[in-house]
Design a binder for these strands. Sequence first.
DNA 1: GCCCAGGGAATCG
DNA 2: CGATTCCATGGG
Length: 277
Amino acid sequence: MDITSLSDGKILVSNADINLPVTLDCGQAFRWEKLTDGSFSGTAMGKTINILQTTEGLIFSGTNKDDITNIWFNYFDFANDYKQIIKNICEDKIVKTAYEHYGTIRILNQDPWETVCSFIISACNNIPRIKGIIRKLCDKYGNDTENGKNFPDAKTLAVLSPDDLSYLHAGYRVPYILDAAIKTASEEIDFNKIRSMPEKEARSELMKIKGVGRKVADCTMLFSLGFKDVWPVDVHIKRAQEKYYPEGLPQFFHPYSGIAQQYVFHFQRMGDGENKQ
DNA sequence: GCCCAGGGAATCG
DNA sequence: CGATTCCATGGG
């Protein structure tokens, strides 16, 4: 991976092993918006940036070399060698087919509070509406970045009442959001401690939050806490398992079954011809 | 009107 | 443990 400053202030990251559009639009993050030129704008880790993937590589706008090294390198999980990981999980036919179609889907290392809150909102919901609710939440309660709105701090939401969030039209999820905010703000839930716990302990810790069951906990662990060997089961994955893995999952998915899960998830939603977008 | 959406809590047995 | 039922909301 090479980082080069361009004359217009943009930064080129070449030789990056990633399919950016699929990675940002496969349902693990909800705040990246695809613009008409094919680039993605979004706010994460307190920064609002734009990224365009071309044949030359990734072109970052609105950021600098230091932030690419200190923030975005980790956000896109570039420390892990996906070529090697994918080589192993591609012994599976479904994963192999999905990889041939979609290239390298990377697991993002997102902010844990934002992630658990986002997946609480995701319960029994569809992706466009999840994005809309999160957008409304950020517009009203998020802190300003240079070019957008950050996800609200837990402390900001912790002092609100359900009525304050009724404009979200998030229904029964509103008290769950508040419970997550209160427990996060008070550090009753400490994500930095959870990060270094064994898998089962981390999961049960997250499930102390109301509205966080097995699936939301697993998504939070996979997409923000570095647990690459969890397999979140939602309605799509359940269907895929019944269809393609009735005898159980291959052992060689370990210890990266979370990455395999993203390929199976994407394949089930988009890929096998009889599914809608 | 019905069904579905990256589920979870409460309440059974 | 597993199976049911209810929980708001909006799009197709």
